[in-house]
Lab assay of single mutants.
Amino acid sequence: IRCIGVSNRDFVEGMSGGTWVDVVLEHGGCVTVMAQDKPTVDIELVTTTVSNMAEVRSYCYEASISDMASDSRCPTQGEAYLDKQSDTQYVCKRTLVDRGWGNGCGLFGKGSLVTCAKFTCSKKMTGKSIQPENLEYRIMLSVHGSQHSGMIVNDTGYETDENRAKVEVTPNSPRAEATLGGFGSLGLDCEPRTGLDFSDLYYLTMNNKHWLVHKEWFHDIPLPWHAGADTGTPHWNNKEALVEFKDAHAKRQTVVVLGSQEGAVHTALAGALEAEMDGAKGKLFSGHLKCRLKMDKLRLKGVSYSLCTAAFTFTKVPAETLHGTVTVEVQYAGTDGPCKIPVQMAVDMQTLTPVGRLITANPVITESTENSKMMLELDPPFGDSYIVIGVGDKKITHHWHRSGSTIGKAFEATVRGAKRMAVLGDTAWDFGSVGGVFNSLGKGIHQIFGAAFKSLFGGMSWFSQILIGTLLVWLGLNTKNGSISLTCLALGGVMIFLSTAVSA
């Protein structure tokens, strides 16, 4: 259960009878995928790494000078000259100064003066180019299975845990398959586009800190620079940016070097996208990844198990997540596992009318040892309800109150669905055939309105939902006002479609 501690969480529900669903994975976010007769899966884009970055340009932001020398000439005696002028490691300046009897010249006039100092770069920052084909995306998957609280967001041991898996995709191999043991396998067909235009970005490294910066900004930095990788004795261009020549006297000129420019660069980098280094690879934390999940090989585990009949206890007080759902960790005293956990939410304890829904599909106890633990997640209705676990006299209950409203949740879900469709863009549509167009249209309606429909009408039977949709269509056909007619027709059509397409 990876997503319960992530604030940016998206719930995606598969269409009834569908074998695939489109998701948008982004750094700092987590996606929970639910479908009829399929286990619930949490998917998170953990890291995006980039390798084989080529150094484009380096800037010196802290330097020192040494070996200063000057040469001067009297008027009419030609130009002052130093051998160091031809050495690229030196920074030199030529000027004219007033000369006369007082400073060793027989004539009054302008004399030539040249001053040089050896330039040494102490600290530099480097910009590297990123090729999209060198990106690698690491995705962690977790099935809502027989897990306890100690396994949440624990990325170790996934090789031997059938509840978890790690997959890596690249532009050259965008397809992967996550093996989930008894739950089958989940196929991923990803489109490795981060949403960032790397043709316009460089990877900047300064003092063990890293950013993504725009090329134009990078090339306009007014500091000494050299092109390409460091060859040991780089040729620094624009050395004068960190060196200041003071007022010249008759035979000498003082040279000083400016202080470190790291603070000024940090100020200019305010708002830039931060990154990290992992050995020789860069780690990015921006952008998104679009994936199509193929769920035809994914299956529920323990459908044929019998119900657990022994007593359950709450190991922890049920807690609310950031998303309005409830996490419950229970301990089973029996030894008759594997068995299914009898769990439901009810409005009252007399009729036990089921409300809400299970995020953890078909929760089971897989071990036959005593005191096995299991964590599950529920989506309670707004208002008061009861969490009921167990059967008969051994069942345990917990009162729950959820604040908020169904309308607010439906609106929030619609906005999130619209954002998801905007990110998917043209990849969500198939114009290759008439059937493809209608299929894409259905998927689009489901992406945007599916979660809201589930919130508003999830407790009704599909037949009642179709009746309401048919009534809206009838009202649309018999209303003389054009805008009201079109609105009723659209709402009725969407409702009829979703009542037959969205899983219960």
Rank of each mutant, 00 (worst) to 15 (best):
S440G: 01
T160F: 01
R193Y: 07
A310H: 04
D426R: 00
V330C: 04
D37C: 03
V437K: 00
T479K: 10
Y202C: 13
V243E: 07
S149F: 15
I389G: 05
L135G: 01
E329W: 11
V388S: 15
R94M: 09
P363K: 07
S306R: 08
A418H: 08
V437G: 00
T76G: 06
G228T: 04
Q350T: 04
N362M: 12
V303C: 00
A229E: 09
I365A: 02
I468G: 14
P171L: 07
G404V: 06
S405C: 07
I341F: 09
I359S: 01
L188M: 14
T48Y: 08
F382K: 07
D430M: 12
G404D: 12
A418T: 08
T32F: 04
S485L: 02
V46E: 13
Y305S: 01
A270G: 08
Y202L: 06
D37L: 12
S260M: 11
G263H: 11
Y137Q: 03
S149P: 15
Y203Q: 10
G102R: 12
C190W: 11
V388I: 13
M349A: 14
G14R: 00
P192M: 08
V21D: 02
V243G: 00
I4L: 07
E377Q: 10
F312M: 11
I389W: 12
A227C: 01
V23C: 03
A422N: 08
F411A: 05
T487I: 12
N172L: 15
V46P: 00
P192C: 15
C105M: 11
C60P: 02
A422D: 05
L486R: 00
P318T: 02
L352T: 12
Y81H: 15
G435I: 01
S58C: 01
W217Q: 07
L107D: 05
V56C: 02
F11W: 11
L96T: 03
E320K: 14
D189E: 14
T309C: 06
D247R: 00
G392I: 01
R73H: 12
G100H: 06
K340R: 15
S70E: 05
G356N: 06
S51R: 05
M206F: 04
C30L: 01
D384I: 13
A451D: 11
H148C: 14
A250T: 11
K297R: 15
V256T: 00
Y305W: 06
T126S: 13
L300A: 03
A310C: 13
G392Q: 15
G29F: 13
V391I: 10
H219S: 05
W217M: 11
W217R: 12
G14M: 11
K419T: 10
L269G: 05
L269V: 05
T414L: 02
W400R: 08
L300C: 03
A35H: 02
G287L: 00
N52P: 00
S146G: 15
A319L: 00
A361C: 05
L96Y: 13
W225G: 01
S485K: 04
C121W: 09
P380G: 01
H27S: 12
R94D: 10
P380N: 13
F411D: 10
G425C: 07
E367K: 11
M68E: 01
G356K: 05
A310L: 00
T479E: 01
K419Y: 06
K84P: 13
T233S: 07
F497R: 03
L212K: 07
K281Q: 13
P318W: 08
G324L: 03
H446S: 02
Y158V: 04
E26S: 01
M374H: 02
R193G: 09
A346S: 07
F438H: 00
L45I: 13
S142W: 07
L107N: 04
S64H: 15
D393C: 03
E168P: 00
N8Q: 06
E377M: 08
I1C: 04
N481R: 01
I389N: 06
H144G: 06
L113V: 10
F453A: 05
G408M: 11
Q131Y: 05
S185V: 09
N237S: 08
G104R: 04
R2A: 03
A272T: 13
E26N: 04
V143Q: 06
K301W: 11
T120L: 13
S499E: 10
N163L: 01
T500V: 00
N439A: 14
K283R: 02
V56F: 03
R9T: 07
G78M: 09
I365W: 08
K297E: 11
N208F: 00
T267F: 09
F285C: 07
Y81T: 15
M495L: 14
I65R: 00
H27F: 04
A410C: 05
F463Y: 14
L273S: 04
S461F: 12
V330R: 02
L352H: 15
T126C: 12
F285I: 09
G282S: 00
A54Y: 06
S440I: 05
K419L: 01
F463R: 01
K373M: 15
F431C: 14
A229W: 05
G18Q: 01
E370F: 06
L242R: 01
G106R: 01
W101G: 05
I65M: 13
K394V: 15
K316D: 02
R420M: 11
T327Q: 07
V46F: 09
R357M: 03
G432R: 13
T19C: 06
V255H: 01
S433C: 02
G150I: 04
L376F: 04
S122P: 04
S306L: 00
D296T: 13
K297L: 00
P192N: 04
S149H: 09
G182T: 13
H214V: 04
S86A: 14
V256L: 00
M375V: 02
F314D: 01
C308M: 12
V56D: 04
V434C: 12
D67G: 10
L82E: 05
Y305M: 07
H399Q: 15
M151V: 14
F119R: 03
G181S: 14
S122V: 15
Y158H: 10
S503W: 07
M349K: 03
L477D: 08
I407M: 12
S51V: 06
D230G: 13
S122L: 14
E276C: 14
V153Y: 06
S461E: 01
R99F: 08
K209R: 13
P171D: 05
H235K: 03
H399V: 05
T366V: 07
